[in-house]
Simulated scan of single mutants.
Amino acid sequence: MISVNGHIVNPEELSKEITNSEQKVILKQMAGYPVIFYYESLQQLKFELLFRVNTIKAANDLDKSGAKFTTFAYSFPNRKLWYRLPNGGFLLREGIYPSEGIEDLVKNGKLYAFECSTAIAIVLYIAVLYTIGPRAFNTYFSRLYLMDWQFDEDLPVYNKEGEDFIIGDVLHFKNPEFDPQQPWWRAENVIFVGDDKFYGHGIGIRDSKTIINFLNDKRKENSNESAYLMRMITRPNYKTISLLR
């Protein structure tokens, strides 16, 4: 269900205000859950819908960029724009606009390699850039650092348990009996793009069955516990991010 300014609304009531077809699909998903999605204003709802649509665009753009999958030990960035730190993270060089650094990941993805958790952070940063624009992005994300689940304070994220996931959410496939020789396949962090399709760095955009089968192929010998989609949902704090514009 959707609550705007203290009132439950249905997608039909918002049809004149929200005309984008992708956003309408997300609205329908929200309305179909018994969980209530609360918004103080229509503008707050519109911002989240735009951000979620831009998250899918960002996931598709990164998927097509040519960026490679690797572990922290072997990660590398475009060194013209980023420092590679000893822990495998990337730190934006002095004098480089944050928007330029993020855009380069899409334009010159072949010059980068990283693992799936950093990929999720990159997707969300791209989505922020698409949503608030380069001027605001450069103001708030002046010294970008890309590493695992470490986010800038202006891109707060939180976790919740449940199955009420919607397009643009970050989800997690767990592989409980992963091959100890390939520990990086203990899990796959993904963006839900709709219609049982998920973007996972190193796997691409695939349905849940394909991702589970892929992870099951990365299990230790004589294992019998299948990989599965966890009940944990990771979301940006859209309300806080909307204040950056």
Rank of each mutant, 00 (worst) to 15 (best):
I166L: 10
D152T: 00
Y145H: 13
R143G: 04
L155P: 00
T139I: 09
N159P: 02
L155K: 02
N159T: 11
D152R: 05
F141D: 02
E153C: 08
L144M: 10
G168T: 01
S142P: 02
F151G: 00
Y158M: 11
D164P: 10
G162Q: 04
D152H: 08
V157C: 06
D148A: 13
S142N: 11
K160E: 15
N159H: 12
H172M: 11
L146G: 04
M147H: 15
I167H: 03
V157L: 08
D164Q: 10
A136C: 11
N138H: 01
G168K: 00
Y140L: 08
I166C: 07
P156H: 01
E163F: 14
S142H: 10
E161P: 02
F137S: 06
D154Y: 15
Y145C: 08
Q150R: 15
V170T: 03
E153D: 12
E163G: 15
D148W: 13
D164T: 08
D152P: 05
N138R: 04
K160F: 13
T139C: 07
S142A: 12
E153H: 10
I166M: 08
D154R: 14
N159D: 13
F141V: 02
G162L: 01
A136T: 06
T139G: 03
D169M: 06
L144P: 02
L144E: 03
H172C: 10
F173I: 03
Y140T: 07
F151N: 02
L155H: 01
D164I: 04
G168F: 00
D154P: 00
E161N: 11
R143A: 09
P156A: 05
D169C: 05
S142I: 09
F137D: 04
L144D: 03
D154A: 10
F165I: 06
D164F: 08
I167G: 02
E161C: 06
E163I: 10
F137L: 07
T139K: 13
Y158L: 09
L144A: 05
L171Q: 00
I167W: 06
L146Q: 05
L155T: 00
Y145K: 11
R143E: 14
Y145R: 12
K160T: 13
I167M: 09
D154M: 12
I166P: 07
L155V: 03
F173P: 04
F173Q: 04
R143Y: 09
W149H: 10
G162H: 01
P156C: 05
F141C: 03
F141W: 06
Q150N: 14
L144K: 05
F137A: 05
G168L: 02
E161R: 12
N159Y: 13
T139R: 12
D148G: 14
S142D: 12
F141T: 01
L155N: 03
V157F: 05
Y140S: 08
M147K: 14
G162A: 06
L171E: 01
N159E: 13
F151A: 02
E163M: 12
L171I: 05
F173H: 03
D164M: 07
F141H: 02
V170R: 01
F173Y: 09
F173E: 00
V157M: 09
